[in-house]
């Protein structure tokens, strides 16, 4: 399989698209756009998983894709959007500095990932090698996002990117066991972090974790 053949090209473009979205996550400062980018990445991951399932003839990957689409493409972004709108109307822009520098670091990480993967995987299938390199890049970029972003949302974005990269690596390897379990476990982790984020948000706003404090604010429009 190489360039010019559809199975390869589609996987290549989907993985590359996820990589591009990871850079958008590093670059973007507007929180709404950040969440949209996360949704896009989740959707792309779902498409990549489904495509791999089709190419490898592995139906369990369809399940992985569906989980990714439902949770990362739709549910989590919708939840985050609502949270943003209701709880942080004044924080449309995240104070992130040194964007140029973090982008530069991101490109270096990708180069590093490529330089690591290329010699290690000699002899493997070209598609798997490339998939692995892109997945590793996405994982590293997720870590970088977590490092450079101060806000809780940035942390969530970084973690989700990281987890997306791991799932992408898993779906790309033919015959990998427990892919569904892995993606579910990752998802649970993300949800836990979001719950923590929510809790912290509450604390920031009301100096308490008591949800009863929220009741007087019910019905407060954006």
């Amino acid at each position: 399989m190489t360039f010019g053949q559809l199975p390869y090209d589609m996987a290549h473009v989907l993985g590359g698209g996820m990589l591009l979205v990871s850079f958008v996550l590093l670059y973007q400062r507007r929180t709404a756009a950040l969440v949209n980018a996360l949704a896009l990445q989740g959707t792309l991951l779902a498409a990549a998983a489904v495509w791999q399932g089709y190419v490898q003839g592995a139906p369990q990957l369809y399940v992985t894709g569906m989980i990714a689409l439902a949770a990362k493409g739709i549910a989590i972004p919708v939840f985050l959007h609502r949270l943003m709108r209701r709880r942080m109307p004044d924080r449309a822009i995240e104070p992130a500095r040194g964007i140029g520098l973090s982008m530069l670091g991101g490109v270096m990480l990708v180069a590093l990932a490529i330089l690591v993967v290329l010699p290690v995987t000699t002899g493997a299938q070209a598609l798997a090698r490339e998939n692995l390199a892109i997945a590793l890049s996405i994982v590293l970029l997720g870590m970088l996002t977590m490092l450079t972003r101060r806000s809780a949302l940035g942390q969530v974005a970084g973690l989700m990117t990281l987890e997306n990269g791991l799932v992408l690596a898993a779906v790309g390897v033919t015959g990998m066991p427990l892919v569904i379990e892995l993606s579910t476990a990752g998802l649970v982790l993300v949800i836990i972090v979001i719950a923590g984020f929510f809790a912290r948000l509450l604390q920031e706003r009301f100096d308490s974790l008591d949800t009863d404090m929220l009741h007087p604010h019910r019905g407060e429009g954006p």
Partner: peptide, 18 residues
Amino acid sequence: LLLAVLAAALIFFSMGLA
């Protein structure tokens, strides 16, 4: 600019695969 550099890195990578 960085996107272009990234494109270059990826194309070197695919050349290395071939």
